[in-house]
C-alpha cells in the first residue's frame, strides 16, 4: 500500500503498520508452517485486534449515557458504541468535585442492556481503575481528561492491557505520545460539556496541519520536528508516509448538532463522540438519530439540511474562556 495509492484520509492503515514500538509481547501472530495444515495459535489483545475495533467504529457516533435506558435510546438511534459514565461532562462541570470511574454495577447494567460496544472512562494515570474496568468486560477504555486526573506526570502504560484504549489529544505530538503508550484510538479533546465545538475544531486543525507539514519533510527535518513536538520519531515517520494518524481518530468535546458532527468529519475525523450534546437536549432520540445520519452523509448538504430540521432545543452552550465553569479540561494530560 503505497502512499500515492491512499484513496483518502479515511483509510486507516493495515495493522502491521501500526504495531507498538515495544510490542514484542503482542506481536502479530506469525503464520505457522506445519505440513499437516494445523491452524496456528490464536492471539488475544494484539494491537491489530485493539485498533481493529476502532476501525469498526469508523463513520459512527459514540454517545455518552448514564443508565441502561439512555443506552437503549442510543442503540435505537444508531450509535455504534456507548460511553458509560455516571455524569455527563456538563454535569461534572456544574457539580465540581473529583470525578472518578463509574460504579461497575451501573456499567454492567449498560453492558446487559445493549448489543453494541460499551466504553467507560478512567482517570488519567489511574491504571487500577483501568484494571477494574477491564475485569468487568468493557470493550474500550477512555483515559479521559473529563475525569479528575489521578497522576500529574504519567499516563497509563496501555500496552499490557487486553482491552484497547482511546485517548484525547490537542495536537500531533500529544496524539503520538498516546499511541506510543499503547492507545489504539485517538480523539480530539475539544472542551467537553460546553456544547461549543470551537476547541475540537482547533485541535483537529492543529493535528491536520502538523500532518501536512510532516508529510512534506525529509528525514533530517523529521528528526528535528519529532524533537520539537516531543513525538517518537518512528511514529512521526509513519504519519508522514500515511498522511494521517496511524490509528483511527474521532472528534470529541463540544459537538451538539448534526452540523457540528459533519464539520468535524469534513475536517478529516473518522467519526464523532457526542457527550452532553444528546441527553442535555430537548429531544435526545431525535437529535441522536440526526447526528448519526450526519456522520454518514457529512458531504451531502441536502441530506444534512433535511436531518437538521425540527430537532428541538440544543443543549445550552458555554463560551470557553478562563472563567468557564469547571475550568478548561483540555489542559489536563501531558
Amino acid at each position: 500500500m503505497s502512499a500515492q495509492n491512499e484513496p483518502s484520509r479515511a483509510a486507516t492503515p493495515a495493522l502491521s503498520a501500526t504495531g507498538p514500538p515495544n510490542g514484542a509481547a503482542h506481536a502479530t501472530a506469525a503464520p505457522t508452517r506445519s505440513a499437516n495444515r494445523d491452524v496456528g495459535n490464536s492471539h488475544l489483545g494484539t494491537f491489530g485486534v485493539k485498533s481493529g475495533l476502532a476501525q469498526m467504529l469508523k463513520g459512527g457516533v459514540i454517545m455518552d449515557v448514564t443508565n441502561a435506558e439512555q443506552a437503549r435510546i442510543a442503540e435505537e438511534a444508531g450509535a455504534c458504541a456507548v460511553m458509560a459514565l455516571e455524569r455527563v461532562p456538563a454535569d461534572i462541570r456544574r457539580d465540581g468535585g473529583v470525578a472518578r470511574m463509574s460504579d461497575p454495577q451501573m456499567i454492567k447494567e449498560i453492558i446487559d442492556a445493549v448489543t453494541i460496544p460499551v466504553m467507560a472512562k478512567v482517570r488519567i494515570g489511574h491504571f487500577v481503575e483501568a484494571q477494574i474496568i477491564q475485569a468487568i468486560g468493557v470493550d474500550y477504555i477512555d483515559e479521559s481528561e473529563v475525569l479528575t486526573p489521578a497522576d500529574e506526570q504519567y499516563h497509563i502504560n496501555k500496552h499490557p492491557f487486553k482491552v484497547p484504549f482511546v485517548c484525547g489529544a490537542k495536537n500531533l505530538g500529544e496524539a503520538l505520545r498516546r499511541v506510543s503508550e499503547g492507545a489504539a484510538f485517538i480523539r480530539t479533546k475539544g472542551e467537553a460539556g460546553t456544547g461549543n465545538v470551537v476547541e475540537a475544531v482547533r485541535h483537529q486543525r492543529a493535528v491536520m496541519a502538523d500532518i501536512r507539514r510532516a508529510s512534506a519533510m525529509n528525514d533530517e527535518e523529521l528528526y528535528v520536528f519529532a524533537k520539537d513536538i516531543s513525538a517518537p520519531f518512528h511514529l512521526l515517520k509513519e504519519v508522514a508516509r500515511l498522511k494521517r494518524l496511524p490509528v483511527v481518530s474521532f472528534a470529541a468535546g463540544g459537538i451538539a448538532t448534526p452540523a457540528d458532527a459533519a464539520l468535524m468529519m469534513q475536517l478529516g475525523c473518522d467519526g464523532v463522540f457526542v457527550g452532553s450534546g444528546i441527553f442535555k437536549s430537548g429531544d435526545p432520540a431525535k437529535r441522536a438519530r440526526a447526528i448519526v445520519q450526519a456522520v454518514t452523509h457529512y458531504n451531502n448538504p441536502k441530506v444534512l439540511a433535511g436531518i437538521s430540521e425540527g430537532l428541538g432545543e440544543a443543549m445550552v452552550g458555554l463560551n470557553i474562556d478562563d472563567n468557564v465553569k469547571g475550568g478548561r479540561l483540555a489542559s489536563r494530560g501531558w
Partner: peptide
C-alpha cells in the same frame, strides 16, 4: 465470542484462494 477482550487473530488455511499454502491472518473483532 463475547466482548472485545475475547477478540483475537489467528492464521488459518483457506480453500480456493490464491496460494492456499499461505495461511490467511484472520482478525476476529467481537
Amino acid at each position: 465470542w463475547g466482548s472485545q477482550v475475547e477478540s483475537f487473530e489467528a492464521p488459518l488455511y483457506t480453500e480456493g484462494l490464491r496460494e492456499p499454502n499461505r495461511p490467511f491472518n484472520c482478525i476476529f473483532i467481537r
